[in-house]
Amino acid sequence: MAVTCLGVRELLPELAIGVLAPAERDEVERHLRWCAGCRKEASELGQAAATFAFALAPVPVPNGLGEKIVERVRHVAGRPGTPRRARTTAASIVAAMVAVASLGWAAAMAGRAERFEDRANRAEQQGAEALETFVRAIQNVVPPGQDLPEEQFHLGPLAPTAEGQGGGGAVLQLVSPNFLDFSMVIVNGLGPQAANNLPYRVQLLNAAGQVLRAGRITELDADGGAEVFHQFANKDLSGYSTVQVLDADGVVVLTGGIERNPSGP
């Protein structure tokens, strides 16, 4: 489908109401990532649609539901007994990384990519840039010696495979004895055909070949980029140092490994 502002705006009412077909919804949401005008209209129509929900005569919520929710959030945010300040720090790191990655990095890399003719150089540069982004984010949020030791963070670049569509990326893992382990993968610069191969999935492998699913990419931004954050409630990520990004057909398009942590050389 040709995605123009005119075409998108025709679909915004159904997007706001929540009845747009998934394929069209993905197209529209990709457009909204970079089109401020359509995004504003989508926001306003979404607000109008939500009016219907608020107009319903409220019914009482079951007793104890609030505590269940608090417990679930507590469980996901950090293991029982984890100091709140540390949980806050961990969440802030993720927030900072997501913010940096989504606000600045993709745009910066889109301009940079034009200056590189060679795909391998471009991928290497993208990976290095992502690594620097992670490192800066962590260093800004967690000074050395605080609650989250830097050695618990592990970083590595992702490079394109021969079967892939180019691009690059990076992976950040937290492997900690005190906090829920997580992985965050940033990809960027996937080729123009990459959107046809959605959804992508991210998986982690250990030396024994065991595989952990670490999230899915259901949409790409205008620069062929996306980020995936996955927290593991009951899994230790120790040893899961190989990262693969696979397309919808199961073809590995990006691969890489954990190489060093932010405090490394």
Partner: peptide
């Protein structure tokens, strides 16, 4: 974002 119980 911080999992603050009061906020939840």
């Amino acid at each position: 974002l911080a999992g603050n119980e009061d906020a939840v």
